[in-house]
Design a protein around this nucleic acid. Structure first.
Lengths: 152, 152
DNA sequence: ATTAATAATGAGAACGATTACTGTTTATAA
DNA sequence: TTATAAACAGTAATCGTTCTCATTATTAAT
Protein backbone atom coordinates (compact mmCIF):
# COMPACT_ATOMS: atom_id res chain seq x y z
CA UNK A 1 0.00 0.00 0.00
CA UNK A 2 2.47 2.54 -1.18
CA UNK A 3 0.68 5.48 -2.79
CA UNK A 4 -2.79 6.32 -1.68
CA UNK A 5 -5.33 6.84 -4.43
CA UNK A 6 -8.51 8.82 -4.22
CA UNK A 7 -11.77 6.97 -3.83
CA UNK A 8 -15.30 8.30 -3.62
CA UNK A 9 -16.18 5.65 -1.07
CA UNK A 10 -13.40 6.74 1.29
CA UNK A 11 -14.38 10.37 0.94
CA UNK A 12 -18.00 9.55 1.71
CA UNK A 13 -17.03 7.51 4.76
CA UNK A 14 -14.82 10.27 6.06
CA UNK A 15 -17.39 12.98 5.49
CA UNK A 16 -20.14 10.90 7.02
CA UNK A 17 -18.14 10.37 10.17
CA UNK A 18 -17.13 14.01 10.48
CA UNK A 19 -20.72 15.16 10.21
CA UNK A 20 -22.03 12.83 12.90
CA UNK A 21 -22.01 13.69 16.53
CA UNK A 22 -22.62 10.14 17.71
CA UNK A 23 -19.82 7.58 17.84
CA UNK A 24 -20.94 4.99 15.30
CA UNK A 25 -19.76 1.44 14.75
CA UNK A 26 -18.48 0.39 11.34
CA UNK A 27 -21.85 -1.18 10.73
CA UNK A 28 -23.77 2.01 11.47
CA UNK A 29 -21.60 3.91 9.02
CA UNK A 30 -22.07 1.12 6.49
CA UNK A 31 -25.86 1.39 6.81
CA UNK A 32 -25.71 5.15 6.29
CA UNK A 33 -23.27 5.16 3.38
CA UNK A 34 -25.32 2.51 1.66
CA UNK A 35 -27.97 5.12 0.89
CA UNK A 36 -25.48 6.90 -1.35
CA UNK A 37 -23.53 3.81 -2.51
CA UNK A 38 -26.11 1.02 -2.54
CA UNK A 39 -23.56 -1.69 -3.21
CA UNK A 40 -20.61 -0.60 -1.15
CA UNK A 41 -19.23 -3.52 0.79
CA UNK A 42 -18.77 -3.70 4.56
CA UNK A 43 -15.16 -4.65 3.97
CA UNK A 44 -14.60 -1.35 2.20
CA UNK A 45 -15.97 0.49 5.22
CA UNK A 46 -13.68 -1.38 7.58
CA UNK A 47 -10.68 -1.00 5.29
CA UNK A 48 -11.12 2.74 5.01
CA UNK A 49 -11.93 3.33 8.68
CA UNK A 50 -8.77 1.55 9.62
CA UNK A 51 -6.79 3.43 6.99
CA UNK A 52 -8.16 6.79 8.08
CA UNK A 53 -7.41 5.87 11.65
CA UNK A 54 -3.81 4.99 10.74
CA UNK A 55 -3.53 8.34 8.99
CA UNK A 56 -4.73 10.05 12.15
CA UNK A 57 -7.76 11.54 10.40
CA UNK A 58 -10.21 9.75 12.68
CA UNK A 59 -10.09 7.91 15.99
CA UNK A 60 -10.90 4.29 16.73
CA UNK A 61 -12.36 3.66 20.17
CA UNK A 62 -12.43 0.35 22.04
CA UNK A 63 -14.80 -0.24 24.92
CA UNK A 64 -16.10 -2.94 27.19
CA UNK A 65 -18.36 -5.46 25.51
CA UNK A 66 -19.39 -3.27 22.59
CA UNK A 67 -18.12 -3.10 19.02
CA UNK A 68 -15.43 -0.58 18.13
CA UNK A 69 -16.66 2.97 17.74
CA UNK A 70 -15.25 5.65 15.48
CA UNK A 71 -14.87 9.33 16.17
CA UNK A 72 -14.32 12.10 13.63
CA UNK A 73 -12.91 14.30 16.37
CA UNK A 74 -9.21 13.56 16.70
CA UNK A 75 -8.51 16.12 19.40
CA UNK A 76 -7.77 14.42 22.72
CA UNK A 77 -10.97 14.07 24.69
CA UNK A 78 -12.65 11.46 26.85
CA UNK A 79 -15.86 9.48 26.56
CA UNK A 80 -18.81 8.30 28.54
CA UNK A 81 -20.67 5.08 27.78
CA UNK A 82 -24.14 4.43 29.14
CA UNK A 83 -24.45 0.92 30.49
CA UNK A 84 -28.18 1.06 29.89
CA UNK A 85 -28.59 2.27 26.32
CA UNK A 86 -25.02 1.95 25.07
CA UNK A 87 -24.78 5.55 23.87
CA UNK A 88 -21.28 6.98 23.76
CA UNK A 89 -20.87 10.68 24.34
CA UNK A 90 -18.01 13.14 24.68
CA UNK A 91 -16.57 14.15 28.02
CA UNK A 92 -14.22 16.89 26.96
CA UNK A 93 -14.11 18.82 30.19
CA UNK A 94 -11.50 16.79 31.99
CA UNK A 95 -7.90 17.82 31.49
CA UNK A 96 -6.45 14.62 30.07
CA UNK A 97 -3.11 16.20 29.29
CA UNK A 98 -2.48 16.88 32.94
CA UNK A 99 -3.16 13.21 33.71
CA UNK A 100 -0.85 12.04 30.99
CA UNK A 101 1.93 14.26 32.28
CA UNK A 102 1.40 13.16 35.84
CA UNK A 103 1.60 9.52 34.79
CA UNK A 104 4.54 10.06 32.44
CA UNK A 105 6.60 11.76 35.11
CA UNK A 106 6.50 8.63 37.23
CA UNK A 107 6.76 6.03 34.52
CA UNK A 108 9.83 4.40 33.01
CA UNK A 109 8.43 3.76 29.56
CA UNK A 110 7.16 6.26 27.04
CA UNK A 111 3.53 7.27 27.18
CA UNK A 112 2.07 8.16 23.78
CA UNK A 113 -1.62 8.37 24.45
CA UNK A 114 -4.26 7.77 27.03
CA UNK A 115 -7.83 6.59 26.78
CA UNK A 116 -10.26 7.54 29.50
CA UNK A 117 -13.72 6.02 29.41
CA UNK A 118 -16.39 6.66 32.02
CA UNK A 119 -19.19 4.14 32.48
CA UNK A 120 -22.54 4.75 34.08
CA UNK A 121 -26.12 5.80 33.39
CA UNK A 122 -26.70 8.71 31.07
CA UNK A 123 -29.01 11.59 31.96
CA UNK A 124 -31.73 10.34 29.61
CA UNK A 125 -31.81 6.85 31.06
CA UNK A 126 -31.73 8.24 34.58
CA UNK A 127 -34.74 10.36 33.82
CA UNK A 128 -36.62 7.47 32.26
CA UNK A 129 -35.74 5.28 35.21
CA UNK A 130 -37.02 7.89 37.64
CA UNK A 131 -40.30 8.06 35.75
CA UNK A 132 -40.45 4.29 35.92
CA UNK A 133 -41.43 4.08 32.31
CA UNK A 134 -41.70 0.52 30.97
CA UNK A 135 -38.36 -0.61 32.26
CA UNK A 136 -37.64 -3.23 29.65
CA UNK A 137 -38.31 -0.94 26.76
CA UNK A 138 -34.82 0.56 26.66
CA UNK A 139 -32.83 -1.74 28.86
CA UNK A 140 -30.38 -4.27 27.54
CA UNK A 141 -29.07 -7.47 29.08
CA UNK A 142 -26.58 -5.36 31.00
CA UNK A 143 -28.01 -6.04 34.43
CA UNK A 144 -27.40 -9.49 35.71
CA UNK A 145 -28.43 -10.49 39.20
CA UNK A 146 -26.21 -13.00 40.88
CA UNK A 147 -27.31 -13.73 44.39
CA UNK A 148 -24.74 -16.17 45.66
CA UNK A 149 -21.43 -16.67 47.40
CA UNK A 150 -18.15 -16.35 45.55
CA UNK A 151 -15.82 -19.29 45.28
CA UNK A 152 -12.91 -19.81 47.69
CA UNK B 1 -28.53 -19.35 37.69
CA UNK B 2 -29.92 -18.97 41.15
CA UNK B 3 -27.66 -20.65 43.70
CA UNK B 4 -23.98 -20.87 43.01
CA UNK B 5 -22.33 -24.26 43.49
CA UNK B 6 -18.70 -24.92 44.18
CA UNK B 7 -16.50 -26.13 41.35
CA UNK B 8 -12.84 -27.06 41.37
CA UNK B 9 -12.39 -25.53 37.95
CA UNK B 10 -13.69 -22.17 39.09
CA UNK B 11 -11.47 -22.21 42.14
CA UNK B 12 -8.43 -23.05 40.02
CA UNK B 13 -9.23 -20.25 37.58
CA UNK B 14 -9.66 -17.75 40.39
CA UNK B 15 -6.46 -18.80 42.17
CA UNK B 16 -4.50 -18.81 38.95
CA UNK B 17 -5.57 -15.28 38.16
CA UNK B 18 -4.86 -14.00 41.67
CA UNK B 19 -1.36 -15.42 41.66
CA UNK B 20 -0.36 -13.90 38.34
CA UNK B 21 0.99 -10.41 38.04
CA UNK B 22 0.42 -10.17 34.29
CA UNK B 23 -3.02 -9.44 32.83
CA UNK B 24 -3.81 -12.58 30.89
CA UNK B 25 -6.42 -13.22 28.23
CA UNK B 26 -8.95 -16.02 28.71
CA UNK B 27 -6.84 -18.10 26.39
CA UNK B 28 -3.67 -17.63 28.45
CA UNK B 29 -5.50 -18.73 31.58
CA UNK B 30 -6.95 -21.67 29.68
CA UNK B 31 -3.46 -22.79 28.63
CA UNK B 32 -2.23 -22.55 32.19
CA UNK B 33 -5.18 -24.26 33.88
CA UNK B 34 -4.98 -27.07 31.36
CA UNK B 35 -1.85 -28.33 33.08
CA UNK B 36 -3.94 -29.12 36.14
CA UNK B 37 -7.21 -29.94 34.35
CA UNK B 38 -6.12 -31.41 31.01
CA UNK B 39 -9.62 -31.52 29.61
CA UNK B 40 -11.13 -28.32 30.91
CA UNK B 41 -12.93 -26.50 28.12
CA UNK B 42 -12.33 -22.96 26.98
CA UNK B 43 -16.02 -22.27 27.47
CA UNK B 44 -15.67 -23.12 31.14
CA UNK B 45 -12.87 -20.60 31.46
CA UNK B 46 -14.92 -17.89 29.79
CA UNK B 47 -18.02 -18.75 31.80
CA UNK B 48 -16.19 -18.56 35.10
CA UNK B 49 -14.21 -15.47 34.29
CA UNK B 50 -17.38 -13.69 33.41
CA UNK B 51 -19.11 -15.01 36.52
CA UNK B 52 -16.25 -13.98 38.80
CA UNK B 53 -16.24 -10.60 37.14
CA UNK B 54 -19.99 -10.22 37.77
CA UNK B 55 -19.36 -11.13 41.40
CA UNK B 56 -16.74 -8.43 41.60
CA UNK B 57 -13.99 -10.92 42.48
CA UNK B 58 -11.95 -10.08 39.39
CA UNK B 59 -11.85 -7.35 36.78
CA UNK B 60 -12.41 -7.58 33.05
CA UNK B 61 -10.38 -5.14 30.98
CA UNK B 62 -11.14 -4.04 27.43
CA UNK B 63 -8.47 -2.45 25.31
CA UNK B 64 -7.79 -1.31 21.78
CA UNK B 65 -7.38 -4.10 19.27
CA UNK B 66 -6.42 -6.81 21.76
CA UNK B 67 -8.51 -9.53 23.39
CA UNK B 68 -10.05 -8.86 26.79
CA UNK B 69 -7.66 -9.07 29.72
CA UNK B 70 -8.44 -10.15 33.25
CA UNK B 71 -7.08 -8.76 36.49
CA UNK B 72 -7.18 -10.40 39.92
CA UNK B 73 -6.72 -6.99 41.49
CA UNK B 74 -10.14 -5.42 41.91
CA UNK B 75 -8.96 -2.24 43.59
CA UNK B 76 -9.35 0.75 41.27
CA UNK B 77 -6.14 1.28 39.37
CA UNK B 78 -5.09 2.11 35.84
CA UNK B 79 -3.16 0.31 33.15
CA UNK B 80 -0.47 0.75 30.58
CA UNK B 81 -0.33 -1.23 27.34
CA UNK B 82 2.85 -1.45 25.31
CA UNK B 83 2.14 -0.97 21.61
CA UNK B 84 5.26 -2.93 20.78
CA UNK B 85 5.05 -6.10 22.84
CA UNK B 86 1.44 -5.94 24.01
CA UNK B 87 2.29 -6.28 27.69
CA UNK B 88 -0.23 -4.76 30.08
CA UNK B 89 1.06 -3.44 33.38
CA UNK B 90 -0.38 -1.63 36.36
CA UNK B 91 -0.31 2.14 36.70
CA UNK B 92 -1.64 2.55 40.18
CA UNK B 93 -0.07 5.86 41.04
CA UNK B 94 -2.59 8.15 39.40
CA UNK B 95 -5.49 9.26 41.55
CA UNK B 96 -8.42 7.95 39.54
CA UNK B 97 -10.95 8.83 42.20
CA UNK B 98 -10.15 12.49 41.88
CA UNK B 99 -10.73 12.26 38.13
CA UNK B 100 -14.02 10.51 38.59
CA UNK B 101 -15.21 13.13 41.03
CA UNK B 102 -14.11 15.96 38.80
CA UNK B 103 -15.98 14.43 35.87
CA UNK B 104 -19.06 13.55 37.94
CA UNK B 105 -19.38 17.08 39.28
CA UNK B 106 -19.87 18.43 35.79
CA UNK B 107 -21.90 15.61 34.31
CA UNK B 108 -25.66 15.16 34.17
CA UNK B 109 -25.73 11.38 34.24
CA UNK B 110 -24.41 9.06 36.88
CA UNK B 111 -20.79 7.92 36.68
CA UNK B 112 -20.22 4.45 38.09
CA UNK B 113 -16.72 3.61 36.98
CA UNK B 114 -13.87 4.85 34.91
CA UNK B 115 -11.27 3.05 32.85
CA UNK B 116 -7.95 4.73 32.18
CA UNK B 117 -5.54 3.08 29.81
CA UNK B 118 -2.22 4.54 28.79
CA UNK B 119 -0.60 3.43 25.54
CA UNK B 120 3.04 3.70 24.56
CA UNK B 121 6.35 1.87 24.64
CA UNK B 122 7.31 0.07 27.81
CA UNK B 123 10.71 0.48 29.44
CA UNK B 124 11.90 -2.90 28.21
CA UNK B 125 11.03 -2.24 24.60
CA UNK B 126 12.55 1.23 24.80
CA UNK B 127 15.79 -0.26 26.04
CA UNK B 128 15.84 -2.91 23.34
CA UNK B 129 15.06 -0.30 20.73
CA UNK B 130 17.90 1.88 21.95
CA UNK B 131 20.28 -1.04 21.70
CA UNK B 132 18.98 -1.66 18.19
CA UNK B 133 18.73 -5.37 18.87
CA UNK B 134 17.15 -7.39 16.04
CA UNK B 135 14.14 -5.16 15.62
CA UNK B 136 11.70 -7.75 14.37
CA UNK B 137 12.33 -10.24 17.13
CA UNK B 138 9.86 -8.74 19.55
CA UNK B 139 7.81 -6.38 17.44
CA UNK B 140 4.30 -7.18 16.31
CA UNK B 141 2.38 -5.93 13.32
CA UNK B 142 1.55 -2.82 15.30
CA UNK B 143 3.57 -0.43 13.21
CA UNK B 144 2.15 0.30 9.82
CA UNK B 145 3.83 2.75 7.55
CA UNK B 146 1.52 4.77 5.38
CA UNK B 147 3.34 7.33 3.31
CA UNK B 148 0.59 9.12 1.49
CA UNK B 149 -1.91 11.95 1.52
CA UNK B 150 -5.22 11.64 3.33
CA UNK B 151 -8.45 11.90 1.44
CA UNK B 152 -10.32 15.21 1.19
C1' DA C 1 -25.60 -43.26 52.58
C1' DT C 2 -29.30 -42.50 48.84
C1' DT C 3 -31.56 -39.85 46.31
C1' DA C 4 -33.54 -35.71 43.98
C1' DA C 5 -32.79 -31.29 42.18
C1' DT C 6 -30.12 -28.44 39.65
C1' DA C 7 -25.59 -26.00 38.84
C1' DA C 8 -21.44 -26.74 36.25
C1' DT C 9 -19.01 -29.16 32.95
C1' DG C 10 -16.82 -30.54 28.23
C1' DA C 11 -17.39 -30.64 23.49
C1' DG C 12 -18.45 -28.40 19.86
C1' DA C 13 -21.71 -25.51 17.13
C1' DA C 14 -23.00 -20.80 16.51
C1' DC C 15 -22.29 -16.10 16.70
C1' DG C 16 -20.82 -11.18 15.80
C1' DA C 17 -17.06 -8.36 14.62
C1' DT C 18 -13.28 -7.95 11.82
C1' DT C 19 -9.81 -9.24 8.38
C1' DA C 20 -8.11 -11.59 4.25
C1' DC C 21 -8.63 -13.23 -0.38
C1' DT C 22 -9.86 -12.86 -5.34
C1' DG C 23 -11.01 -11.37 -9.49
C1' DT C 24 -12.76 -6.87 -11.44
C1' DT C 25 -12.93 -1.84 -11.70
C1' DT C 26 -10.98 2.69 -11.24
C1' DA C 27 -7.57 6.36 -10.58
C1' DT C 28 -3.32 8.08 -11.84
C1' DA C 29 0.89 9.02 -14.30
C1' DA C 30 3.65 8.13 -18.45
C1' DT D 1 -4.63 5.24 -24.21
C1' DT D 2 -2.37 2.54 -22.11
C1' DA D 3 0.16 0.43 -18.11
C1' DT D 4 0.37 0.20 -13.21
C1' DA D 5 -1.25 -0.60 -9.09
C1' DA D 6 -4.72 0.94 -5.60
C1' DA D 7 -9.44 0.28 -4.37
C1' DC D 8 -13.35 -2.03 -5.06
C1' DA D 9 -17.46 -5.67 -4.25
C1' DG D 10 -18.32 -10.02 -2.85
C1' DT D 11 -17.35 -13.57 -0.12
C1' DA D 12 -14.66 -16.83 2.66
C1' DA D 13 -11.95 -17.13 6.67
C1' DT D 14 -10.49 -15.91 11.28
C1' DC D 15 -10.84 -14.47 15.95
C1' DG D 16 -12.77 -13.96 20.37
C1' DT D 17 -16.64 -15.11 22.74
C1' DT D 18 -21.19 -17.06 23.82
C1' DC D 19 -24.57 -20.66 23.48
C1' DT D 20 -26.53 -25.47 23.39
C1' DC D 21 -26.96 -29.78 25.22
C1' DA D 22 -26.14 -34.19 27.01
C1' DT D 23 -23.42 -35.67 31.01
C1' DT D 24 -21.23 -35.08 35.56
C1' DA D 25 -20.74 -33.07 40.10
C1' DT D 26 -22.39 -30.59 44.10
C1' DT D 27 -25.62 -29.76 47.39
C1' DA D 28 -29.70 -30.42 50.48
C1' DA D 29 -33.05 -33.37 52.11
C1' DT D 30 -34.23 -37.78 53.14
Amino acid sequence: MAVLKYSRQREAIYNNLRQRKDHPTADMIFADIRKEFPNISLGTVYRNLSLLSDLGKIQKLAADGIADRFDGNVLPHDHFICRRCGAMTDMDFVDTERFKEEAASRFDGEIESCSIVFYGICADCKKKEAMNLAGEEYSSEARKTVEAQPTA
